[in-house]
C-alpha cells in the first residue's frame, strides 16, 4: 500500500517545516500550500488523502478553502483537520458546522494530531466494508 498523502495548508513556513518533518517521520507523504488559492490548486493536482488546514490564511480564510473543496465532487470527501491559532468559540463552532473532521488549537500536541490523522485515514475502509 502506497503512502498516504497529506496536504498542509499553513502560511507559516516554519510550522509547515515542523509538520512536514513530523508527518514524514510517521511515513506520510506531505505537500504544502501557503495560501488559500494554492491550497485549492494543490488539492486538485495532488488529490491528498487528508488536508491539515489553518484558518488564518492570506487570500481567503480556511473556511473558504473548505467551502471550495466541498463544491468539488472530487475533493468534497477529503477529510479536513483544522489547526488554528484563533481561540474563540465562533471559530470552533464554525469549524464544526463546516463539517471538519477534527479541530486543533495552536499550539497543538503532535501525538494527538497523529492519532487523528490515523483515524481519519482509517475510515474509508470501514465504509467500504459496510457497503459490501
Amino acid at each position: 500500500m502506497s503512502k498516504k498523502k497529506i496536504l498542509i495548508v499553513e502560511d507559516d513556513l516554519d510550522l509547515v517545516n515542523a509538520l512536514t518533518k513530523r508527518l514524514r517521520a510517521n511515513s506520510y507523504d506531505t505537500i504544502y500550500a501557503l495560501d488559500a488559492a494554492s491550497a485549492i490548486q494543490e488539492a486538485h493536482k495532488e488529490k491528498p488523502d487528508v488536508i491539515v488546514l489553518d484558518i488564518g490564511l492570506p487570500g481567503g480564510d480556511g473556511f473558504s478553502v473548505k467551502k471550495e473543496l466541498d463544491s468539488s465532487v472530487y475533493l468534497s470527501d477529503i477529510p479536513v483537520i483544522v489547526i488554528t491559532a484563533q481561540n474563540d468559540s465562533t471559530t470552533f463552532k464554525r469549524s464544526w458546522r463546516a463539517g471538519v473532521a477534527a479541530f486543533f488549537q495552536k499550539p497543538f500536541d503532535d501525538q494527538q494530531l497523529l492519532s487523528i490523522v490515523e483515524t481519519v485515514l482509517g475510515e474509508p475502509s470501514l465504509i467500504e466494508e459496510k457497503e459490501e
Partner: peptide, 22 residues
C-alpha cells in the same frame, strides 16, 4: 494571540521534534 501562538507553535513543534530524535 494569533501572532504569538504561531511562532510558539513552531518552537514547540521543533522542540518536540528534537526531543523525539527526529
Amino acid at each position: 494571540s494569533h501572532e504569538l501562538r504561531t511562532p510558539l507553535s513552531a518552537i514547540l513543534q521543533f522542540v518536540t521534534i528534537l526531543l523525539d530524535g527526529l
